[in-house]
């Protein structure tokens, strides 16, 4: 691997890690608050991409506005999923997880039937050109993901540690019963965590829409990676999932560059299996999965 390829791979890995982080943080948050394992998280990502496709590529809305509107729309999906899937199956992680696999089917079919299956929807790139970093070329479109991720993760940290509502979420994650004894409304907290979780997945999908192929099934590859990330990081740990996101981003980019994409996925799942066996609580997690 020569020097420019190396630099290029590093920058690709950082961008990929950022996307993984945005997706996985939401997954970890929902799991942390009330053991909600959302199989449809990848479809939330896909829904975010379709928001950009509909509002920006078809509707002619400015790109930033389209990306921002993905947040409330997909957050609403998250709230609906919490109310009708996770609340009735509370206390049974597997049932919630499998039921959201049903949600994934439902969303795929609806999106596929409304906007078509076969052909990929092309979303024109709003920001042409590329930045040069130490000889590596990174398109502005990709580079944009980095500040977006930093802003979102920073915002989430601020919300969880400085805002009363966010502190409630963390209290819930630590001990549900104790939190409800303090007068925290648990149902409100689970709905809130799913809203944030969905919103994050939506923004990630929206940002990737001009880069990825937008299809009803695009969530499938992201959900596999996202679960690998949160398992490696520690199912309920937000810090862990960010760390794991960048580790996986580097592994995936470098193995793909040197060998091929299939092997990269194999290394990813093998890494997750090793973590499950050696440290079932994940890199930074406290409790076992």
């Amino acid at each position: 691997m020569d020097w420019p390829t190396f630099i290029q791979s590093i920058s690709n890995a950082v961008i990929l890690g950022s996307i993984y982080a945005t997706v996985a943080v939401g997954l970890a948050l929902a799991f942390g608050v009330m053991q909600m394992a959302n199989f449809a998280h990848g479809e939330f990502f896909m829904a975010g991409a379709y928001v950009v496709y509909v509002f920006y590529a078809i509707g002619g809305m400015p790109f930033p506005a389209a990306v921002l509107s993905a947040f409330p729309i997909v957050a609403a999906l998250g709230i609906v999923t919490e109310r009708f899937i996770f609340r009735p199956t509370r206390g049974n992680v597997l049932a919630g997880f499998m039921a959201t696999a049903g949600v994934a089917f439902v969303l795929q079919v609806i999106v596929g039937q409304v906007w078509g299956v076969g052909l990929m929807r092309s979303v024109p790139t709003p920001y042409m050109g590329a930045a040069e970093i130490l000889g590596a070329k990174v398109s502005w479109q990709r580079l944009l993901i980095l500040p977006a991720t930093v802003t979102m993760v920073g915002g989430l940290w601020f919300f969880l540690h400085k805002v009363r509502l966010g502190k409630g979420l963390r209290a819930c994650a630590q001990d549900v019963e104790a939190a409800s004894l303090q007068g925290i409304n648990i149902n409100k907290m689970t709905a809130l965590s799913m809203a944030i979780s969905g919103g994050f997945a939506g923004i990630a999908g929206a940002l990737m829409a001009p880069i990825n192929a937008v299809t009803p099934y695009m969530g499938h590859s992201i959900i596999v990676t996202a679960f690998i990330v949160v398992i490696v990081g520690g199912m309920a740990s937000i810090e862990g999932s960010i760390l794991a996101a960048f580790i996986l981003g580097f592994i995936h980019t470098f193995v793909t560059t040197i060998f091929d994409a299939v092997l990269a996925t194999m290394v990813g799942v093998a890494f997750m299996a090793v973590i499950l066996v050696v440290k079932p609580s994940g890199l930074l997690g406290r409790a076992r999965v």
Partner: peptide, 13 residues
């Protein structure tokens, strides 16, 4: 798939 997904959801919830 929508039908099957719906059935899965109904049975689990």
């Amino acid at each position: 798939p929508l039908l099957f997904g719906g059935i899965l959801i109904v049975f689990l919830t």
